[in-house]
Amino acid sequence: MKCVIGIEGGGTKSVMRLSDMHGNTIADSHGDCLNIYIIGRESVFNNLKDLYNKIVSKVDFKPDIVRVCIGTAGLVGEDASKFYVSSLQNICNCNDVIALTDAHISLYGYLGDMPGISIISGTGSICIGKNSEGKIVTCGGWGHIFSDEGSAFDIAINALRYIYGYVDNRNGSALIYSEFLKATSSKDYNDLLTFVYDENTNKTVLASLAEVVNDCAEKGDKIALRILYDAAGKLYDMCYDAAKNLNFNDDYEFGVVASGSVLKKSMIVRNELIKRMQENFKQCKIVKNECDAVSGAVYLALMK
Rank of each mutant, 00 (worst) to 15 (best):
T194P: 00
F195C: 05
V196A: 00
Y197L: 03
D198T: 03
N200I: 08
T201W: 09
T201A: 08
T201H: 07
N202G: 15
N202M: 12
K203S: 09
T204D: 12
T204K: 12
T204P: 00
V205W: 04
L206M: 14
L206F: 02
L206P: 00
S208D: 11
L209K: 13
A210P: 04
A210V: 09
V212F: 09
V212A: 05
N214H: 15
N214V: 15
C216W: 04
C216D: 01
C216V: 07
C216Y: 00
K219A: 09
G220D: 06
K222D: 12
I223W: 13
I223H: 08
A224Q: 05
A224I: 06
I227S: 11
I227G: 07
Y229S: 09
Y229T: 08
Y229H: 15
D230C: 13
G233H: 07
L235N: 06
D237E: 15
M238H: 04
C239T: 05
Y240G: 01
A242D: 11
A243L: 09
K244A: 03
K244W: 01
N245Q: 15
N245G: 13
L246G: 13
N247C: 13
F248W: 12
D250Q: 15
D250L: 05
D251C: 12
D251M: 11
E253S: 13
E253D: 10
F254C: 10
F254T: 11
F254L: 13
V257Q: 11
A258R: 01
S259D: 12
G260R: 04
V262H: 02
V262F: 01
L263T: 09
K264Y: 03
K264P: 02
K265F: 00
S266Y: 08
I268A: 14
V269H: 09
R270K: 15
N271C: 02
E272S: 14
L273Y: 10
L273F: 13
L273W: 08
I274G: 07
I274F: 12
K275W: 02
R276D: 11
R276K: 15
M277L: 15
M277T: 02
M277H: 07
Q278L: 15
Q278F: 10
F281E: 00
F281N: 00
F281D: 01
F281T: 00
K282L: 08
K282D: 06
Q283H: 10
C284E: 04
K285Y: 08
K285N: 13
I286L: 07
V287W: 12
K288C: 05
K288P: 00
N289Q: 14
C291F: 13
C291G: 06
D292K: 10
V294D: 05
V294E: 06
S295P: 00
G296P: 05
G296L: 04
A297C: 03
A297T: 03
V298N: 11
